[in-house]
Design a protein around this nucleic acid. Structure first.
Length: 456
RNA sequence: GGCGACGUGGCCGAGUGGUUUAGGCAACGGCCUGCAAAGCCGUCUACCCGGGUUCGAUUCCCGGCGUCGCCUCCA
């Protein structure tokens, strides 16, 4: 069974399943007010790889990932551009899924929206007030973090330490907050609602829900108490996940059993990609200019918890590496694929079960490719099962290899034949000319004694 | 100020108390080829610094230095 690092216990432990054969996962999704960036790509690819792996092992995976379509950033943008807020969220959500399609991330099984859960969030907030875990101030309803005994479990810091270590940081939020860490559950709308600034009625006054409530409500509604795994980027660990957990705990509900957080994407200088620094790269730009598989490969070759450096050089290396894998797929197309080599598959599984050791698994893929190439060269029967193992692993990773050539036009194929004819005639000047011509058109040309193959 | 992560060869990036030790990219040599390409074989650069533990440390401990993150919206 899969062993995964659990943020809450800070240890690698078995991912226990609530129901045998089924995995329930909640992944915090995007706030839709702008384009998806590299950081979003890393998170979604990480969990896409996890999901595909789990499915490959035969588990029934339910992956719930929300869309946050109520949020200050959305309202700010709508107000600035004088547009209806939901025009922005609709547009950005469509853009988000275009990016996800582009990098080959499968759709979650459920995609709840915050706007669909306002009523339930109000119920949740009401229950928290009833239990004396939340209180009303002039500008909203706040969660009383001191009502939660183990608040700080994901921050690895007690409330006292947080306050003591606060240094000269400003306390953000209302002056009426009981504790600096108390967070907003409901924000009152003080002005008249506009098309850019949505508002919902509540028992405490018109307003909108705070960010931390939606994920609690949606995860518990769709997955139920004690679901298996809650995941997201490192930056969500605190305060977002801590605060989600606090609400569930305050209500006496069992929340996620296991917490998984992926590392950041950093730029070439090692700095985190962040909107405020302005070094964010748009995911759609990336996949427009490069092979979208390159990003997946970069991530597969590093551990999900490590920071990943994303720069020109890294992408170029991955592209070169993919060329090798595609070349393999091309020559492997001529081999009768057999049952995947059991030793390779066992090694793959062992690597993955150990906290998703995809770097080790990729090393295994490259080793197996080499072994398969040698077997093909030697005409050995083992080639088929080695090829099969490589294909099976790549498929479990969502890494599609391209055997190429299928999009070659008749014209290109005619040139390939002409090249073979010229070589047969020992007219190497003509042969080289044809090859150069094809290469200039972007084809990889391989002339062998069995004839010429062309690939993109 | 508190909490946390990290510092590996030309580059990216795993891993480990010693024995052969990732893997990728790049470079170089060889085989193959009409020449290339692809493929195969081989070579080359490593574990931030100072102490300690140990028969032995890149790996464990302590202390530096450096980089980064969280503590505030952020995948």
């Amino acid at each position: 069974m899969l062993h995964l690092y659990d943020t809450a216990t800070r240890s690698v432990r078995e991912l226990a399943l609530r129901e045998p054969g089924k995995v329930s996962i909640y992944l915090c999704g995007p706030t839709v007010y702008g384009p998806a960036h590299l950081g979003h790509g890393r998170a979604t690819l990480t969990y896409d790889i996890l999901r595909r792996y789990l499915e490959w092992t035969g588990l029934d995976v339910r992956l719930v990932s929300n869309v946050t379509d109520i949020e200050d950033k959305i309202i700010e943008r709508a107000t600035r551009e004088d547009r209806p807020w939901d025009e922005i969220t609709t547009e950005c959500e469509a853009m988000w899924f275009r990016a996800m399609d582009g990098i080959g991330v499968q759709r979650p099984t459920d995609i709840p929206h915050a706007t669909e859960y306002v009523k339930q969030m109000i119920e949740l907030i009401g229950a928290l007030i009833e239990r004396d875990a939340a209180y009303v101030t002039d500008d909203g309803v706040y969660m009383d973090v001191e009502s939660v005994d183990d608040y700080g479990a994901l921050a690895f810091q007690s409330l006292e330490d947080m306050r003591a270590g606060g240094g000269d940081r400003m306390v953000v939020g209302a002056a009426q907050k009981r504790h600096p860490a108390d967070f907003v559950l409901w924000k009152f709308t003080h002005c008249e609602p506009t098309a850019s600034d949505p508002s919902w009625p509540s028992p405490w006054g018109a307003g909108r829900p705070g960010w931390h409530s939606e994920c609690v409500v949606m995860s518990l509604d769709l997955l139920g108490e004690g679901f298996d795994l809650h995941c997201g980027g490192q930056d969500l660990r605190f305060p977002h996940h801590e605060n989600e957990r606090a609400q569930a705990v305050a209500l006496g509900k069992t929340f996620a059993h296991h917490w998984m957080h992926n590392g950041f994407v950093v730029d070439a200088e090692g700095e985190k990609m962040s909107k405020s620094i302005g070094n964010v790269s748009n995911l759609l730009d990336l996949i427009e200019h490069y092979d979208p598989r390159a990003y997946r490969l970069v991530l597969l070759q590093s551990h999900y918890r490590s920071p990943v450096k994303m720069g020109q050089a890294g992408i170029d290396q991955a592209v070169a590496s993919l060329a090798g894998l595609d070349a393999f797929a091309s020559r492997a197309a001529a081999v009768a694929i057999g049952d995947s080599d059991p030793a390779v598959i066992a090694a793959f599984r062992a690597a993955m079960e150990d906290d998703l050791d995809t770097p080790k698994a990729m090393a295994l893929v490259f080793d197996t490719v080499r072994a398969a190439n040698s077997a093909i060269d030697a005409g050995e029967a083992a080639a088929g099962s080695l090829v099969g193992a490589v294909m099976e692993i790549c498929s479990a990773f969502g890494l599609e290899l391209s055997a190429g050539g299928s999009d070659a036009s008749d014209d290109v194929l005619a040139k390939a034949s002409a090249l073979d004819q010229a070589r047969a005639d020992r007219d190497y000047v003509a042969a080289d000319a044809i090859r150069s011509e094809l290469q200039a058109d972007g084809w990889n040309v391989e002339t062998t004694k069995d004839g010429t193959t062309v690939r993109r």
